[in-house]
Amino acid sequence: MAQNEHPGDELEMPDASRRHFLKQSSALAALALAPTAAVKAVDTGWDQKIAAAFEQLPLQVTINGTVQNVSIEPRVTLLDLLREQLHLTGTKKGCDHGQCGACTVHVDGQRVNACLTLAMTTEGSNVTTIEGLATNDHGATARLHPMQEAFIKHDGFQCGYCTPGQIMSAVACIREGHADSPEEVREYMSGNICRCGAYANIVEAIMEVKQGGKKV
């Protein structure tokens, strides 16, 4: 395969973090080349400290309007960052493979599967989760988004587990202009599985919001 077929392969990093990255990489490589030192490090628990120091990278991302400065391993997905570190557990894990849509959130307005998104790639982005959809954000007193209202009215859920992902996807589906007919909604919502089978009600809810003309 010709090299120019991969235009996106080049790392795009600000200079500072590129230097930081290279420094860490060479230190790790040096460690790897010295097996006795490495074994010793394991014995004394130094590996833990080294790992903790080397494996964490800084990330700044705005989530539901709040700027978050966190330090994370580069292998952490957006989904696990939200759930395990920021305790925004409204976003659900259903497969970890981008096959079910339960983890759908908005990154800069686009719906994405948070399980397929490395958290580090959201540097500087705006992320909206189900917790950020209702205005005011504070539990029972918050005013619901029209899509949330419509899901309640049309009973667009049963167990409720896929619901945050369905709602985030539904909002994006309308914004994308893919909600002009029930058939179109079914097509563009097919990445969000509902095992309880609330599909018919979900489509009704989306069509009502779309036809109601309220801003989503």
Binding site: T89, K93, A142, L144, Q148
Partner: peptide
């Protein structure tokens, strides 16, 4: 309406892993 509907549409419903 489902009595736990609001919890389910806001992400407020806590499942075991939450």
């Amino acid at each position: 309406d489902r009595v736990d509907g609001r919890m389910k549409v806001t992400g407020g419903a806590n499942y075991f892993a939450d």
